[in-house]
Computed example of a mutant assay.
Amino acid sequence: MVWLTPQVLENDHVILTPLKKQHTAALMEAVCDGELWNLWFTHIPTPEQMESEVQRRLNLQTQGKMLPYTVIEKQTAKVLGMTSFMNVEATHRRVEIGSTWYRQSVQRTHVNTACKQLLLSYAFDQLDCIAVEFRTSSFNFKSRAAIERLGAKLDGILRSHQIVRDDVLRDTYVYSIVKSEWAAVQQHLNFLLAKPYVTQGK
Rank of each mutant, 00 (worst) to 15 (best):
M1H: 13
W3N: 15
P6E: 06
L9Q: 09
N11I: 06
V14T: 02
T17C: 12
P18C: 14
L19W: 03
K21M: 12
H23Q: 09
M28T: 12
E29N: 11
E29Y: 06
V31Q: 02
C32M: 15
C32K: 14
L39H: 08
F41T: 02
H43T: 12
T46V: 09
P47E: 02
M50V: 10
L58A: 10
K65Q: 14
P68A: 06
T70K: 02
V71N: 00
I72T: 12
K74G: 07
L80D: 09
T83C: 14
S84G: 06
E89I: 11
A90W: 07
T91K: 13
R93I: 01
R94Y: 01
S99G: 07
Y102T: 07
Q104H: 11
Q104N: 12
V106S: 04
Q107K: 04
R108W: 00
A114T: 01
C115R: 00
L118H: 01
L120A: 06
F124N: 07
L127Y: 03
C129H: 02
I130F: 05
R135C: 11
S137G: 10
F141N: 14
F141R: 15
F141A: 15
R144W: 05
A146Q: 05
I147C: 10
K153V: 12
D155F: 01
L158V: 04
R159Q: 13
S160C: 11
H161T: 12
L169P: 03
Y175V: 07
I177V: 15
V178A: 11
E181Q: 15
W182F: 13
A184R: 10
Q187H: 10
H188I: 08
N190R: 08
L192H: 02
P196W: 01
Q200D: 12
